[in-house]
Design a binder for these strands. Structure first.
Lengths: 66, 66
DNA sequence: TCAAAAAGTAAAGAAAACTTTACATTTGTT
DNA sequence: AACAAATGTAAAGTTTTCTTTACTTTTTGA
């Protein structure tokens, strides 16, 4: 599962810590997701999409192995 | 978190077991999600949206408490 | 009505998401 | 170069997702 969080974050010019605060999670959680260490819950994915004003599908991309 | 799986399933005329098979999960998992016992992972939510030919946002609806 | 299919439920355990704490590395600015 | 902000990483622990097995209830259709 790939994601475009870093790019979306750049568009909004917000830091990992800033995004974490907006979404109500820890900075490490954002970092881990962004680095692909794990995939967020659907609730968090939906909140991210809402914050970035796009669809979940725009941020999280299914791959073969998913 | 509410979801519209039952309705989407009706549109496609597919059973819980059939959907489970299509998505590669157990029937009980589909049942539990449909009944709101838990929210699926983002990967499964994306697969559902793909199967139902809609957006994750169309199936899973954030609420206050999420 | 009677049988089969579908849906509901429960419990125990495995796997994945997420937190907290803490420290290291990189990047940007002066 | 030096300092601060941002990012990266790791480990231990909690919560949530999901599986398997198994049984009950509801719905459907011949």
């Amino acid at each position: 599962m790939k994601n475009t969080i870093k790019v979306e974050r750049a568009k909004k010019d917000i830091t990992q810590a800033g995004l974490a605060e907006q979404l109500g999670v820890s900075r490490q959680t954002i970092n881990a997701i962004e680095k692909g260490k794990f995939v967020p819950s659907t609730a968090l994915a939906l909140k991210m999409a809402r914050f970035f004003e796009c669809k979940v599908e725009d941020i999280f991309l299914l791959e073969e192995e998913d």
